[in-house]
Design a protein around this nucleic acid. Structure first.
Lengths: 115, 115
DNA sequence: CTAACATGCAACAAAATAGTTGCATATTAT
DNA sequence: ATAATATGCAACTATTTTGTTGCATGTTAG
């Protein structure tokens, strides 16, 4: 049987919730879009042209980093942020799991109705 | 060309951000898991056994409903919440888009290095 | 009819989030 | 060496989120 300790399930959930929460913001979503487009960018580059202060952008980047969605590397006087795809792939997996659970529920209902 | 007005892009982003934000919470993730497992459930059913008050659960459900992740229907004295898969499917699509953008960026880099 | 149940609404408090500003420090360009 | 650039740290405010409690109202069971 798939018995999985509730604690383990809860821990997983907390982790996924943190990733979802990190993506749950316009600004951060825009940053992810920008970074997923290619090369690593510095905080200044990511701030330039935006209406938010550098510090605000920095905080958002740290949230994304904390969730494992981006990585930062210091390079001289700037710190470069780079998209880290694994976490997003993993999240897709979670959504897949939820969808599949639903599909299976539907087909169970279906076979019940049909008998 | 794919020129897409920035406003349209921003609007899309806001919408997705709202869905991510709705999923960015342990309790709500647990509710989604429960509801994706099958039959619609009433607020009382979803509250029973949990350590949160009924009102707290209700608020969470309304957040999920606002994001289009669940639907509610009144049935007599109770209101039943049901998982609504389309929104989650759509979100998976967004994550796919981001991943693909990254993959394409990688292959562009690859072909650049190789020449 | 009346009691039990299910929910809604509103006011409130505590905590987390988002953003700003000012100042300090490290790195690079001239 | 100096100035310009890039970032970090801390304090502070405003807003949003999370949760509670109390009370009112609608619905169903006995």
């Amino acid at each position: 049987m798939s018995r999985r300790s509730p604690n383990r399930v809860a821990a997983k959930r907390r982790a996924y919730a943190a990733v979802f929460a990190a993506l749950g913001d316009q600004t951060r979503l825009a940053l992810v879009a920008r970074l997923s487009h290619g090369e690593p960018r510095s905080i200044s580059q990511l701030t330039r042209g935006r209406r938010l202060s550098r510090q605000a952008i920095t905080k958002h980047l740290r949230v994304l980093e904390g969730a494992g969605i981006v990585r930062s590397v210091r390079s001289g006087r700037e710190s470069l942020f780079e998209f880290h795809p694994e976490t997003v792939i993993d999240l897709k997996g979670y959504l897949d799991f939820v969808s599949q659970q639903w599909d299976q529920a539907l087909s169970r209902l279906q076979s019940f109705v049909e008998r």
